[in-house]
Design a protein around this nucleic acid. Structure first.
Lengths: 267, 267
DNA sequence: CAGTGGTCTAGACCACTGG
DNA sequence: CAGTGGTCTAGACCACTGC
């Protein structure tokens, strides 16, 4: 590394022997060193250098690699862990977070039974109603940052808890990254859909935005969820994003809330 | 400080001259030093040593007071800041968080307009419908950790955005901490109700749990919210907690979601 | 036992704020 | 300008894991 180092805060002894590997070209705008390290590790995650569930290099390794102190790498990884992108395990190492872990099963599904804890009803039954290739409407295109008419997958499924159909979901996915998706692959997979996305399509959902409304069960949703016509349903519109903050899924969920509720903790 | 110091992780030079002020009697079970410091600062907040909006001592002051390094105090404050109990401002100091700040206005109100950002419709109109002293039902008592029949306040209010009644709330508060509450004081106060609780009753809400359901507008809620009878409403049941993790408020909100939605970010 | 993350300290310097 | 939080380093030792 022979180029000049970028301007940064709190530098003291770092430049004395050999500057950090970071250059102005790589990170055009000013930011603290640990933020840049975070960005570099994030790149590794984005590019699949370390896949979900895998071990990333130790803090000392990364410190050597980037020519910074362990404390700086530590602060970078602290933030990645706070963002749930990575999981620390004392004595073992730092792992790329995955939706396949039991711990993460209910991170994106906030509907819980009124009595009992998440999962206490046993595993949900997942039934694929439909999986077809179609063209993005203006609305779907806007949500997924596509153009109207671009190819998308449309999936419809029903989740049942304790034998009762409780959630109806319509899901739209851009066709390209999910090449080869079929109803069979969806139906045969045990576990969360996002875990399948990770292992089969190398798509890792890291965050999502939900808009929640109260609506009436119409348009056949009453039939699929076995409710009265016009019964109140919780409408949950989700846009899920990958590492690159790229929208990769639009999902419209309809939840029965007569025996379950959507939980949210404010702080 | 003549008593022995508690066992803790990673001690090296701290005990050499004079041990930290922490003793086994003060903190019976093992925990890292910075967690204990966090607990001590938390005590100060609980006991009102520093009130919402006020400046707490600098990191170096606290380090001297507790006989630990600044880095340890720093990590303690980092966690308090992550919990939104405290706000750091570079060059100025660390302040006790308050609901009166503009920044915190929408931390607990998650209903936002479909078009535009939170607050873009101008300030909400707050109308107190009712404020009466009554006795806790079994359900209210359970939520607030009281006994059935204990005295509670019951408040009912309507929030309107852009002239449209949008939120109806029924609120239950334990009578003792809110001695002297009246409809007038509630009505005359400009700003969030939780800000009034801070300044008038020394009650600071720090977190809350919400259970969200879809229901039908009945029991006069259709009238107060100017909707059709039986129209879908978002039901939001909240229990709010103070510093001591003590439940201090039960609130049942009914939100119209035809022009607004409840937003939630998952990560 | 070696290697990992976790804690703690000490000291240096930077960025920002207000008087 | 002094004082605050923010960054970075270096080194020590602890707690935990797996071989």
């Amino acid at each position: 590394m022979s180029t000049t180092t970028i301007p940064r805060a709190g530098d003291s002894a770092a430049d004395s022997a050999q500057g950090p590997i970071l250059t102005a070209a790589m990170t055009p705008s000013f930011s603290p060193l640990y933020q840049q390290i975070k960005g570099l590790i994030l790149n590794g995650l984005r590019l699949g250098e370390w896949k979900p569930g895998e071990l990333i290099p130790s803090e000392t390794d990364l410190a050597r690699r980037f020519h910074v102190s362990q404390g700086t790498v530590r602060k970078a990884i602290d933030e990645l862990a706070a963002d749930n992108l990575v999981v620390r395990r004392q004595g073992r190492g730092t792992f790329v977070a995955t939706h396949a872990e039991q711990q993460m099963q209910f991170r994106f599904l906030r509907l819980v039974p009124d009595h009992g804890s998440p999962g206490s009803e046993g595993p949900a039954r997942r039934e694929i109603i439909e999986c077809r290739r179609t063209r993005a409407s203006a609305e779907v295109a806007r949500a997924l940052a596509l153009r109207s008419g671009d190819a998308v997958w449309q999936v419809r499924r029903v989740l049942s808890f304790a034998g009762t159909p409780t959630i109806l979901e319509d899901i739209w996915l851009p066709a390209a990254p999910f090449k080869g998706l079929t109803a069979e692959r969806l139906a045969n997979y045990q576990g969360p859909m996002y875990a399948l996305f990770e292992t089969e399509f190398n798509v890792r959902m890291v965050r999502a935005e939900e808009k929640i409304r109260a609506e009436s069960a119409v348009d056949g949703r009453d039939v699929l969820l076995n409710t009265k016509h016009g019964a109140p349903l919780l409408s949950v519109e989700r846009i899920a994003y990958t590492y690159k903050d790229q929208a990769m899924e639009l999902r419209r969920g309809y939840y029965r809330t007569d025996t379950h509720h959507y939980r949210n903790n404010l702080s």
